Computed example of a mutant assay.
Amino acid sequence: MSTVPAPAAPTANPSAVTSAPQMADAQNAAQSGNGDLAPVSWDSEIQLVSSLAKLQELERKIHELRAILPQGLLEPLVPISNPDKATADNTISSSPHHLLSDLNQTARARIADIEQFQSMWRGPELKPVWAHVESRISESNGQLLQSSGMWEKDYDELREELLKEEKEKEEQRLREEEDIERVKAQSTEGQWQAVLDGFIQRDIPGVRVIKGHDQMEIAVALTRAGIFFLIHGSSEPDETEPDETAMPDWQISSKVAPGKSRTKLEDAILGCLGSRPRKWDLAFLLVR
């Protein structure tokens, strides 16, 4: 594990960054002195871990930049002095003119690396991080925040884990909300009829809605595109769904004239509609 660079090394423990009550006042003062800093919630664990991951990435690039002098600039000379180290990307120059061109190209590439690093260091994403680190160092009377001088965790991996956990929690929350809505829809008699009547009353230009003979069948014609869809509510609920939230799914198919086949546009629309969530929700299909 590599050492932390000298500029304002952050703490290895995210929870320690938010432990001091006066931290918020110091951070607000730092932000008020620099109006271009966006407000940042340092009580958020994902914000702390993301900031530490950015600092680790900066350190990694610092070690890469240290190799520029002299190795990085002299790469074109390596296969000349040691032919065994020649590669497809770094071959032996065929002439002094080509060697000079290779050296110039290598120098420009290394300068671009330095400029990219400077842009990242001074970029808007890191400005609030530097302000927060400076306020914490000020609170500790100039003492560095990471006593070991080493990174004790891979914060990029930790950030990915936290993002995955947040995504799973959000998906669970959405599933629970959908279950509640399904139960409510199931207990409301004639709700889908009201949704259909409301959709017909909108009288959308180029869209014609026809009720079928089956009470749970609807025909929707996109007159300008010449496309005709059938929407049919399945009589049996999906067996994979829990009984308490079971609702008929609304299936979509297209109707084409005899002797004709579906167009690519129709196939694309059917594919999109078929992959939609909330197949039980007619309002989600028609209105949204």
Rank of each mutant, 00 (worst) to 15 (best):
M1P: 13
V4F: 02
A6D: 09
P7Q: 06
P7V: 02
P7C: 05
T11M: 01
A12N: 12
N13S: 10
A16E: 08
A16T: 02
V17F: 11
S19G: 00
S19R: 14
A20L: 09
P21C: 00
Q22W: 09
M23I: 01
N28V: 08
A29Y: 15
Q31V: 09
N34E: 09
L37A: 05
A38T: 09
V40H: 05
S41F: 05
S44K: 13
E45P: 01
I46E: 13
L48W: 05
L48C: 02
V49C: 01
S51L: 07
S51W: 00
L52N: 00
L55P: 03
L58V: 01
I62Y: 12
L65N: 13
L69H: 15
P70G: 11
Q71C: 07
L73W: 12
E75L: 11
V78Y: 08
V78L: 08
S81V: 14
D84L: 14
K85S: 09
A88W: 02
N90V: 06
I92M: 00
I92S: 03
S94R: 10
P96A: 00
H97I: 00
H98E: 04
L99E: 01
S101E: 10
S101R: 11
S101N: 07
L103M: 11
N104G: 08
A109M: 03
D113C: 05
I114R: 02
S119V: 10
W121M: 00
G123V: 05
V129N: 00
W130L: 02
W130C: 07
V133M: 15
V133K: 13
E134P: 02
R136D: 00
R136A: 11
S138P: 07
E139V: 04
E139R: 03
S140P: 04
Q146R: 03
G149T: 07
M150Y: 11
E152K: 15
E161D: 12
L163N: 07
E168R: 05
E168S: 00
E170P: 06
Q172M: 14
E176F: 14
I180V: 13
E181Y: 10
K184D: 04
K184T: 12
Q186L: 01
Q186T: 11
Q191P: 11
W192F: 09
Q193T: 13
A194H: 10
L196I: 15
L196K: 09
D197R: 08
G198N: 06
F199E: 03
I200C: 01
Q201R: 10
R202A: 06
I204N: 10
P205E: 14
V209G: 12
I210P: 04
K211H: 08
G212L: 00
H213A: 07
M216C: 11
E217M: 12
E217C: 10
I218H: 02
L222A: 12
L222K: 03
A225H: 09
G226L: 04
G233E: 07
S235R: 15
A246K: 13
M247K: 08
D249L: 06
W250R: 12
I252K: 08
K255C: 12
K255M: 15
A257P: 04
P258V: 12
K260H: 14
K260G: 13
E266Y: 00
E266C: 12
A268Q: 01
C272H: 14
G274A: 05
G274C: 02
S275Y: 03
S275M: 06
R276G: 04
W280P: 00
D281G: 05
D281M: 01
L285Y: 00
L286M: 13
L286K: 14
V287F: 15
